[in-house]
C-alpha cells in the first residue's frame, strides 16, 4: 500500500497564553489523497483552522509547540526549516481564507498579488507573471481579465474577490489546497458558484482539498470525506454518506439535529447542542464531549469521564465514543433520525 498524499499523525498544537496552555489540537490524525476533498467540520474553537495553519507552519513558534507528524508527499513538515516552508507555501500547498476582503492586500493590484506568488516560486519575469495572472483570472471566471488585472481588491464584489483569492492560491498548481471557510462570508448563490468552481478546478488539476467549514451543507455538496472535530480532537470520520447518512457520534447527532430543515413546520424550534464548548485550557478528562452528552450514562458508569475514547476503527467510518455499535444504531434510528 502506498503512503497517503498527506498524512497527519497525532498532531498536537499547544499555545502558551497568559491564562495557561491552550490545547488547541490534541492527537489528531487524518489522511487525504490527491483529487479528493476532505471536509473538516466543527464549531468555532474546535481546532479546524489551527490544524491547517500548522500544516503550513504559520503559527508563531514563540508561543506554540507542535508535535506529531505531518507528512506531505514524503516530506515531514513539522520541524522543517523556514526556507523549506516558504518554498512550500503558495507553491505545493496553498490556502484560501474566509474573508476575501481583509485577506487580500488593499494596497496592491490583484494582478500583482497573483503575479508575485508566481514569481516567487518560479522566478518568472514581471511580464510573464502578469500574463499568468490574467490567465488565472480567466480560469476562475472573472470577466475581462485583461482589464481587471490592474484593479485593486476593493473594486471587486465579494464573490469576485474570492475568485481572485482562488486564482492566487492556484497560480502555482498546488497539490494541496486548504480552504478555510471559503464561502462563509459570501451570500448563498455566490457560495454555490464558488464551490462549483473549486470542484471544476479540482477535476482539471487533481488537487487535494481540505475544506474547513462549520456548514454541513457545504460538506454535503463539496466534500468526499468528512472529519468532525470537537475540542481539538476528531470525534468522527468517514465518507460524506457514512457520516451524514448514518452518524455514530453523539456530537455529530447534535450538529445534524441543530440544522434547520425546509421540510419541517416553521414553528418547530431548532435543537441546539446543549451546554457550551469546553475551555481548551482545562479540557475535561475522558471524552471532551461527555459533559454535554445525553448518552454518557449509557456507556457505563463514569466511563466517559475517565478515559479518552480513541477513534475506531482505524480505517473507514470511525468514531470516538464508548457506546456499542448497537446502541449507536438504535439511538440514531429512534431519537435522531426523526429530526433530520
Amino acid at each position: 500500500m502506498t503512503a497517503p498524499f498527506l498524512s497527519v499523525r497525532d498532531l498536537t498544537v499547544d499555545f502558551s497564553t497568559e491564562d495557561g496552555v491552550v490545547h488547541a489540537v490534541n492527537g489528531l490524525s487524518f489522511d487525504i489523497e490527491k483529487g479528493t476533498t476532505l471536509g473538516i467540520v466543527g464549531e468555532s474553537g474546535s481546532g479546524k483552522s489551527v490544524t491547517n495553519l500548522a500544516i503550513l507552519g504559520l503559527h508563531d513558534p514563540d508561543f506554540t509547540s507542535i508535535s506529531g507528524e505531518i507528512v506531505l508527499d514524503g516530506q515531514e513538515l513539522i520541524g522543517a526549516s523556514r526556507r523549506e516552508l516558504e518554498r512550500l507555501r503558495g507553491n505545493k500547498v496553498a490556502m484560501i481564507f474566509q474573508d476575501p476582503l481583509t485577506s487580500l492586500s488593499p494596497f496592491h493590484t490583484v494582478g500583482r498579488q497573483i503575479g508575485e506568488t508566481y514569481r516567487k516560486h518560479t522566478g518568472a519575469s514581471r511580464a510573464k507573471a502578469r500574463q499568468r495572472a490574467i490567465e488565472m483570472l480567466g480560469r476562475v471566471g472573472i470577466p475581462q481579465p485583461q482589464s481587471r488585472v490592474d484593479d485593486h481588491p476593493h473594486q471587486f464584489s465579494g464573490g469576485m474577490r474570492q475568485r481572485v483569492m482562488i486564482a492566487m492560491a492556484l497560480v502555482c498548481d498546488p497539490d494541496l489546497l486548504i480552504a478555510d471557510e471559503p464561502t462563509t462570508a459570501l451570500d448563498v448563490t455566490v457560495q454555490a458558484q464558488i464551490l462549483d468552481l473549486l470542484r471544476d478546478l479540482q477535476e482539471q488539476t487533481g488537487t487535494a482539498i481540505i475544506m474547513i467549514t462549520h456548514d454541513l451543507g457545504v460538506v454535503t455538496s463539496a466534500a468526499h470525506e468528512v472529519l468532525v472535530m470537537y475540542a481539538g480532537r476528531a470525534v468522527e470520520r468517514g465518507t460524506v454518506r457514512e457520516v451524514l447518512g448514518s452518524p455514530r457520534h453523539p456530537y455529530t447527532w447534535g450538529l445534524l439535529s441543530s440544522l434547520p430543515r425546509l421540510s419541517a413546520p416553521v414553528d418547530v424550534p431548532l435543537v441546539p447542542v446543549r451546554g457550551t464548548p469546553p475551555s481548551l485550557i482545562n479540557v475535561p478528562p475522558g471524552c471532551p464531549f461527555h459533559p454535554r452528552c445525553d448518552y454518557a450514562a449509557l456507556a457505563g458508569p463514569g466511563l466517559c469521564g475517565q478515559e479518552r475514547p480513541e477513534l475506531s476503527p482505524h480505517r473507514g467510518h470511525g468514531d470516538a465514543c464508548y457506546l456499542t455499535p448497537a446502541q449507536k444504531r438504535d439511538i440514531f434510528l429512534e431519537k435522531v433520525k426523526e429530526h433530520l
Binding site: 504559520l58 507555501r89 503558495g90 485577506s103 492586500s105 516567487k120
Partner: peptide, 26 residues
C-alpha cells in the same frame, strides 16, 4: 495581525518581504 499579512505569509513570502512590501503601507 491583519488577514492580508497572513495571506502573504501563506503564499510563501518571507517575513522580511511581508514587513517591507505589505505591512508598512498600512
Amino acid at each position: 495581525g491583519e488577514d492580508y499579512v497572513r495571506t502573504a505569509r501563506a503564499k510563501g513570502m518571507s517575513a522580511r518581504t511581508v514587513f517591507l512590501r505589505f505591512a508598512w503601507r498600512g
